[in-house]
Design a protein around this nucleic acid. Structure first.
Length: 857
RNA sequence: GCCGGAGUGGCGGAAUGGCAGACGCAGCGGACUCAAAAUCCGCCUGGGGCAACUCAGUGAGGGUUCGAAUCCCUCCUCCGGCACCA
């Protein structure tokens, strides 16, 4: 039994304690101390500390950023690498109701679990900068930022149709609702008109779109944001209502098709509907509008298959030709986009076409080029089609023009006559910013009895959360904060008036919109952060997290950042210069024929891949799925660490495959990297005899020239693969080195210590221990990153492949600097090549130096 | 329906115009051992061959090229996002 084998359970706590004691990863907070070194700000998307604790998916991104942080530190950067908690949120509030505790207690308990689990992995966070969005000295500044928004006119209250979730007793943002259900829980959501806080993110639509250009983000995430912002160019066109002095405006991206407009449609919520409806049609229209109002989004989506609508009895006058066209009401037109009214061109819009067919409305072709009759299908091409049937009064004719030219012509014509204007429309809507919840930031706002909204002065912050007995809405439907006593609810204003506090709270996104700025200066009591430090650290050089935040968090945070930029509080237009999404980690799950799941520990997986239940031998179905409690396939990092240690856990997280893809967790894979670390251990330690490996020598690295070459190749590849987050191949190269070192005759110490520095960001505990045993006095975490010698990265002799007609037939060993002609001569003379040329003359010879020769015959 | 991304051994994956399968897992054979575990060495895409070697092969089909997993076209499958946005 070896008495000095690799034992992560001894060395990992030991080094974590030493790092802690020496404050090895403390980032200076004094600007003078920071000066003179380049900076690197590497940030994880901070977690919501749920009650379930960590699973192995969480540390994937954290491990990647930690490796980068450690490497950058060794490369001489000041590194900012913090961790904190997105601590407000609904689950804690619900757990509080369930357990009869305060949400703050639930949150504290969950944070303690998360922190303990994260610390066991040996991450080099500067824990002095830990923040929680739910602590008053943090949310004080969230409230302060809200005041900046309010004072710039970017926050307002409005009666808006909201997504009300009865099960949760709160409104939700549009983004939190999909197919009429809350995306997190699946509870149904209905539409209600309520007075709510809104943020004018739409003012920033163009900048949010434009500034995506310069960001080093995954193209897919940029595209998702672009789609969400949804910019379209078009025109507003004014239609007069026949036999009336009223008019209305529609937005269209195809003003060129105005001659093809055969009817107009109002959204059921359009304010003019009641006014224009004729008496004969009133009952039918009112029925339709009422029915539409009662429909949830879910119903409206479900009914999308066939179009419904009702005629108002009124007509509109087409401004280009004076023709009267009927006005309908239909719920396929949305009040929330454009003007809530459209001109319908069934010949050239699929939705209008479907509606016209359903209600037997006329279809006119105004763009030619379709290969089907216009009655059969709308022709929607907007590039090559040529205008027809488009001549009206006033000398206007679009006939013969191609669509883009027609759009320009008609827009100019409308503008000249005051009948319309070219306009850009965004799909993005203002951000619904209030929630009827307890566990969130209170607004720094009070309401006077006469209805005035008063923003509190900065000096009154923070507005703390009051103690209340129940975390439910009041009986009359007001938010939970309305349950607070008058000592909290009533506020005496400086002018003597008594006002009532706002009882809505902010959504969970608020705290995560600016946490990256607080990390820069987390203990500042007089300002949200120091501008000098902000100027040093921003922007974030690498931001890593899940793709589920591609739109919401990242768009909201960018919006706040731009507001803060306009206020002069931040120095960069964008907060996150480089974004990286790690892929989800999946796991095998096992299910019987009734769909019941079993724990992997109760399952026997045989060589051929089939699975059976250990107790009964029953055959089970195995599949790879997202980890979830109900599928009994959650892998807890605590268990992995207990068996293999944190270093193996870290290494496997990154060795599994490319960081950005989904991949299944396989325990056998952890064993593989564990064996690699054991082999590394044995390079330094003589397990049986104790002490150092006798093969270690004080001779220079060049005394083992082959190993030295491999070392330099490894330095090169490990550094570049780490930098580019291709850590799986970087680790593979380190394995190649260790395999070779294992069989080398001697091990020059310099070779080993150089290698350990490369390994140390990945397996920091093991590397510290071996570094120490090799007599190095300082921490490896503070050592210099090794440099490679390019000349040692190229082998003295290289293998050149000889191909005949693209097929490999032979290979040559040649000196690395052999010239083209010589290589060609050798190739043409190689025995196997000659055999396959069958005496034919080479037609062409392609020589790729250092790689191959292709002989074409 | 529209917009992205991906399909490579038994498995995770490598190679992004130049030797397909690096590295790891699993498996097989060997050494060590009384034995086992651990460790070390070797084999490990499929077909044919005693072997040297040879034929086929990166979802399917076609193309460009001296040369294609990689570039282009058509199609299939899977994953993600959006979905009456006028």
């Amino acid at each position: 039994m070896p008495h000095d084998s690799y034992d992560p359970h001894t060395i990992e706590p030991k080094w974590q304690e030493i790092w802690d004691k020496r404050q090895a990863f403390k980032t200076p907070s004094d600007p003078d101390e920071l000066a003179g070194k380049p900076k690197f700000y590497v940030l994880d998307m901070f977690p919501y500390p749920s009650g379930a604790g960590l699973h192995v998916g969480h540390p994937e991104g954290y491990t990647a950023t930690d490796v980068i942080a450690r490497m950058k530190r060794m490369q001489g950067f000041n590194v900012l690498h913090p961790m904190g908690w997105d601590a407000f949120g609904l689950p804690a509030e619900r757990a509080a109701v369930r357990e009869g505790l305060h949400p703050a207690d639930i949150t504290r308990r969950n944070v303690d679990t998360f922190r303990r689990q994260i610390k066991r992995l040996g991450f080099s966070y500067d824990w002095d900068r830990e923040i929680s969005t739910a602590s008053a000295d943090y949310y004080r500044w969230t409230q302060w930022i809200f005041l900046q928004l309010y004072n710039r006119g970017l926050a307002y209250m409005a009666d808006v149709p909201v997504n009300w979730c009865p099960a949760l007793g709160t409104v939700l943002a549009n983004e939190e609702v999909k197919d009429g259900r809350y995306v997190e829980t699946g509870d149904p959501v209905e539409r209600r008109l309520m007075r709510q806080w809104m943020l004018k993110i739409t003012v920033y639509a163009e900048r949010l779109l434009e500034d995506l250009e310069g960001l080093d983000w995954p193209e897919s995430v940029k595209e998702m944001q672009r789609n969400w912002i949804g910019k379209s160019r078009g025109a507003d066109v004014v239609f007069r209502i026949a036999d009336s002095d009223r008019d209305f405006t529609v937005f269209t991206t195809r003003p060129d098709t105005l001659f093809g407009a055969t009817y107009c449609v109002f959204s059921p919520e359009h304010p003019l509907v009641a006014a224009i409806t004729t008496e004969e049609r009133r009952a039918a229209v009112e029925d339709y509008v009422t029915a539409a109002a009662q429909k949830s989004d879910l119903d409206r989506t479900d009914l999308a298959k066939s179009k419904t609508g009702v005629f108002t009895g009124a007509s509109a006058v087409n401004p280009v030709n004076g023709e009267r066209i009927p006005i309908w009401v239909a719920d396929y037109v949305l009040m929330g986009y454009g003007t809530g009214a459209i001109m319908a061109v069934p010949g050239h819009d699929e939705r209008d076409h479907e509606f016209a067919r359903a209600f037997d409305l006329p279809i006119i072709e105004v763009v030619s080029g379709s290969d089907k009759p216009i009655e059969e299908a709308a022709f929607t091409d907007n590039q090559d089609g040529v205008m027809v049937n488009s001549t009206g009064a006033d000398g206007l004719s679009l006939d013969g023009l191609r669509v883009p030219d027609a759009i320009a012509r008609i827009t100019a014509w409308l503008e000249e006559r005051g009948l319309g204007t070219g306009r850009i429309q965004y799909r993005l809507r203002d951000w619904l910013f209030s929630r009827q919840r307890y566990w969130g930031e209170p607004f720094p706002i009070v309401h006077t009895d006469d209805g005035e909204v008063v923003a509190l002065d900065e000096s009154w912050l923070p507005v703390g959360l009051p103690a209340i007995d129940e975390y439910r809405p009041t009986e009359d439907g007001r938010p939970p904060l309305a349950r607070a006593g008058d000592d909290w609810l009533k506020v005496a204003l400086p002018d003597g008036r008594i006002a009532n506090r706002e009882t809505n709270t902010m959504p969970q996104w608020a705290g995560s919109c600016w946490y990256y700025l607080r990390f820069i200066d987390p203990h500042n009591e007089s300002e949200p952060w120091s501008k000098q430090l902000e100027n040093y650290w921003m922007p974030i050089d690498l931001y890593v997290g899940g793709v589920e935040h591609a739109v919401l968090h990242l768009l909201y945070a960018r919006f706040w950042h731009k507001v803060l930029y306009d206020c002069g509080w931040v120095s960069t237009k964008e907060p996150f210069q480089k974004l990286f999404n790690q892929g989800m980690i999946l796991a095998y799950s096992y299910r019987d024929s009734n769909g019941k799941y079993y724990l992997p520990s109760d399952v026997e997986v045989r060589e051929d891949g089939t699975a059976t239940l250990r107790a009964t031998g029953e055959a089970l179905e195995s599949q790879i799925e997202k980890m979830s409690k109900s599928k009994l396939n959650v892998v807890n990092p605590d268990d992995v660490i207990a068996e293999y240690g944190a270093d193996s856990m870290r290494l496997y997280e990154l060795f599994m495959g490319p960081l950005e893809v989904q991949k299944p967790w396989q325990m056998k894979g952890v064993e593989g990297v564990y064996r690699f670390l054991q082999r590394t251990w044995r390079l330094v330690v003589d397990e049986k005899a104790g002490g150092l490996n006798p093969r270690l020598t004080d001779a220079p690295s060049s005394s083992e020239p082959e190993l030295e070459r491999t070392l330099h190749k490894t330095i090169k590849k490990a550094a570049s693969d780490t930098e580019s987050l291709q850590m799986n191949t970087g680790i593979a190269q380190m394995m190649i080195f260790v395999n070779e070192a294992t069989t080398a005759e001697t091990l020059p110490r310099a070779t080993v210590t150089t290698f350990l520095r490369l390994l140390s960001p990945y397996a920091p505990h093991l590397s510290e221990e071996l570094w120490h045993r090799l007599g190095e006095p300082d921490l490896i975490a503070h050592a210099d990153w090794p440099q490679y010698d390019e000349t040692l990265c190229i082998d003295e002799t290289i293998t050149v492949v000889v191909q005949i007609n693209g097929k490999k037939r032979d290979e040559l060993q040649v000196a690395k600097d052999t010239d083209r002609g010589e290589i060609e001569r050798l190739a043409l003379a190689s025995p196997n090549a000659l055999k396959h040329m069958e005496g034919k003359k080479p037609k062409k010879v392609v020589v790729v130096p250092g790689r191959l020769v292709n002989i074409v015959v």
